[in-house]
Design a binder for these strands. Structure first.
Length: 113
DNA sequence: GTTCTCACA
DNA sequence: TGTGAGAA
């Protein structure tokens, strides 16, 4: 992590994150949040999962996982589910915007030789 | 492995 | 707000 990284490495990071999609069980394991709680939150409308084609299994990308993680930490700090979800969604917009810019920069600077 | 619903605290 | 259990 200390050598000069080429632009392709940056692209790999973004591409890697974008392709991370797992089931509720995996999310439950990596976030420590019980699967039932995740479904409960989605039922409340504070998180959104993606359905996989014809199957009914929920799929979660890294943004969803990050959202779940953030909300979980906020709730553990004493926030109510609603307020935690509100704060997280607000922060997610900033994060997405920053990552969008990063992806744009990484894509544009691939030919400066 | 996943989904749902009913019920309870 | 979050869980347990049964059933598909």
């Amino acid at each position: 992590m200390d050598q000069k990284k080429g632009t392709e490495n940056v692209l790999l990071d973004v591409d890697f994150l974008q392709k991370l999609v797992v089931g509720i069980g995996e999310v439950s394991e990596i976030t420590g949040v019980p699967a039932r709680k995740i479904r409960y939150w989605e039922e409340k409308g504070i998180i959104q999962s993606e359905k996989e084609g014809e199957g009914t299994t929920r799929r979660y990308n890294y943004l969803n996982i990050k959202k779940i993680l953030l909300i979980q930490e906020l709730v553990e700090e004493g926030y109510t589910l609603d307020s935690a979800a509100k704060k997280v969604e607000d922060r997610m917009e900033n994060l997405n915007e920053a990552f969008r810019k990063l992806a744009t920069l990484a894509t544009d600077q691939k030919d400066d030789a």
